[in-house]
Lab assay of single mutants.
Amino acid sequence: QTVHVKGVQYHFPNPEEAVKFALKVAKDLGGRVEFHGDEIHVE
């Protein structure tokens, strides 16, 4: 599972961890989380 944050990719073997990370980052940055297939983008 890959999380993209402002052009940087973070790889997580566990999808659940990836989602938790993405939600935390989005909250910290005041952004939103978008799901694109296997990828999660924080915009």
Score class of each variant (00 low, 15 high):
10 Y>L: 05
12 F>K: 00
30 G>V: 04
1 Q>N: 13
7 G>H: 07
20 K>R: 12
6 K>F: 15
10 Y>S: 02
10 Y>E: 01
30 G>L: 06
27 K>R: 11
11 H>S: 08
4 H>V: 14
11 H>I: 08
23 L>Y: 14
36 H>D: 07
26 A>T: 02
37 G>W: 06
2 T>D: 03
27 K>F: 11
5 V>P: 01
29 L>I: 13
31 G>W: 14
36 H>E: 06
21 F>Q: 03
4 H>S: 08
15 P>N: 12
42 V>Q: 00
35 F>G: 02
34 E>W: 14
21 F>A: 04
29 L>Y: 08
23 L>C: 14
5 V>H: 05
43 E>L: 15
38 D>Y: 10
10 Y>N: 02
18 A>L: 02
43 E>G: 09
15 P>K: 15
28 D>M: 14
26 A>K: 02
28 D>T: 11
5 V>Q: 01
32 R>V: 11
27 K>V: 08
6 K>C: 15
22 A>F: 02
9 Q>I: 15
40 I>Q: 01
39 E>N: 09
15 P>G: 10
34 E>G: 06
8 V>K: 12
17 E>Q: 09
10 Y>M: 04
36 H>G: 04
30 G>H: 09
21 F>I: 03
37 G>Q: 07
32 R>P: 02
32 R>S: 10
41 H>K: 07
3 V>A: 01
20 K>H: 07
31 G>L: 13
26 A>V: 05
7 G>F: 04
11 H>N: 09
1 Q>L: 14
39 E>F: 07
25 V>K: 06
35 F>R: 06
5 V>R: 02
12 F>P: 01
12 F>I: 01
4 H>F: 14
15 P>C: 15
26 A>R: 01
5 V>F: 09
32 R>E: 05
10 Y>T: 03
4 H>N: 10
1 Q>P: 09
19 V>Q: 08
17 E>M: 10
2 T>W: 10
16 E>G: 08
19 V>I: 15
35 F>W: 12
43 E>Y: 15
40 I>F: 03
42 V>T: 01
18 A>P: 00
9 Q>D: 09
33 V>E: 00
4 H>C: 15
26 A>M: 04
34 E>Y: 15
36 H>C: 14
36 H>R: 13
42 V>K: 01
25 V>T: 09
17 E>Y: 05
41 H>P: 00
37 G>N: 09
34 E>K: 11
9 Q>G: 05
10 Y>Q: 02
22 A>V: 02
4 H>A: 05
6 K>V: 06
8 V>C: 14
6 K>A: 13
20 K>P: 01
2 T>F: 07
19 V>C: 15
28 D>V: 12
1 Q>Y: 15
24 K>I: 08
17 E>T: 08
19 V>R: 11
35 F>I: 10
11 H>W: 15
27 K>C: 14
10 Y>F: 10
1 Q>V: 15
19 V>L: 15
29 L>S: 09
38 D>P: 08
9 Q>Y: 12
25 V>P: 00
9 Q>C: 15
32 R>K: 10
23 L>H: 13
